[in-house]
Write a protein that binds this DNA or RNA. Structure first.
Lengths: 217, 217
DNA sequence: ATTAATTATTGCACTAAACGCAAAAATACA
DNA sequence: TGTATTTTTGCGTTTAGTGCAATAATTAAT
């Protein structure tokens, strides 16, 4: 008789997969702990592999670089956001879609209590900051794709959706920065509400400013 | 008799400063040429220093890292933009200020014929892409500061200006990507005009969308 | 259970980036 | 000319990251 097999249509993880996942988690945990204690540059890969009890060489079998360990935990955010966009009611306006999807994705992502400490680590490690910005760029393209797939307009729509995505992602980024800086007297949910309120208000103001301008011509 | 001295209040560069500048330029030119020929990773610092005829160690006396050579040439853009913002007429609307300042700063920056090739280099070198995003982040804060200094509103204005800056910088970034991708049948000036027209139109649309939404409540 | 095929882990050697330090060379100045 | 200052260099060291081949663990087949 073979080991473990399908149960509900999906293949269950055997010893191999399980061990691999455990090792990966061990490395990740050791790395984050050391980074938070000694800073990103203050912890070498050897320190990490020693703490996780694997060879230095194996580290690179699990993560392509030292930086990636830091960002691995939030790799799924963009996909979750895209799913949340697709899950919004079909007749909702684009504004409502964004606010709904973003809020739910954000609440899910910020559930991790470590996220604040990691945010601080990223904030004061230049190379991590740079890498972090890339995340936002990817998030932006994913969001654009999700919105485009939704309201399947023509190609002319693409630039606008791209701009809209950029605006939304920027809002998230700026909101994140504020959230990390300020003493939080608000719940995350309230915070997100306020942030979006401010965003929509700003857009409304800008919109009317622009209207004035073009009508004056 | 001493060497060279003041002429119009400013100290002129002596042999030392001149040589240092020349060496810096030599390294920069050699590096860019090699990067464009063999890719960023395909050219080692030794290759560069050999071509520039300086010791490997000296490289780091001029540039803190290999990456910085690529970005050194555009270090001044953010400052030029800030200056351009300050130089706009006092009574201009914020929309006009941004369009005017951005256009003039962009035209100046894109004058360098190498900028396109460098853009391509950055585009397909992940570590450079990441670093490049940081540039936009810095640009954003500088723009926010410049706008804030201009229309010296209260602190409540800050978040809005930050959002606006983010929107504008995103527009520039997306525009830059388009500019690099597409075959350019337009002059940069026309291109910038079209881009801003699209931005303002998008903002106007969004603005009215948001108005509808909040009035429906 | 034994064996064969996969896959994971490791050790070792190697390249290249980046830093510290002190000697040597170039430059400025008196 | 001589002396102080700054620049350049050489050398050694650390660390990230890769390639490769040997070894160990796991799975699958007989």
């Amino acid at each position: 008789m073979t080991d473990v097999q399908e149960i509900d249509g999906a293949v269950k993880e055997g010893r191999r997969e399980r061990k691999r996942r455990q090792t990966r988690e061990r490395i990740e945990a050791a790395a984050l702990a050391l980074f938070l204690e000694h800073g990103f540059d203050g912890a070498t890969i050897e320190d990490i592999t020693e703490a996780a009890d694997v060879s230095k060489r194996s580290f690179f079998d699990y993560f392509p670089s030292k930086e990636e360990v830091v960002f691995a935990w939030q790799d799924s955010f963009a996909d979750e956001l895209a799913d949340a966009v697709a899950a919004q009611p079909k007749d909702a306006s684009i504004v409502a879609v964004i606010e709904g999807a973003l809020t739910s994705a954000l609440l899910a992502a910020m559930a991790d209590p470590q996220s604040l400490a990691i945010g601080a680590l990223i904030h004061d490690t230049p190379v991590l900051s740079a890498r972090h910005q890339l995340k936002y760029a990817k998030l932006e393209t994913k969001l654009t794709d999700a919105l485009y797939a939704r309201s399947g307009g023509g190609e002319g729509e693409l630039l606008r959706l791209r701009l809209l995505s950029a605006i939304v992602v920027s809002t998230v980024r700026i909101g994140g920065e504020r959230w990390n800086e300020r003493p939080q007297d608000l719940s995350l949910q309230e915070f997100a509400q306020d942030l979006f309120r401010e965003l929509w208000a700003t857009l409304a103001d800008l919109g009317s400013l622009v209207e004035q301008r073009s009508s004056r011509r």
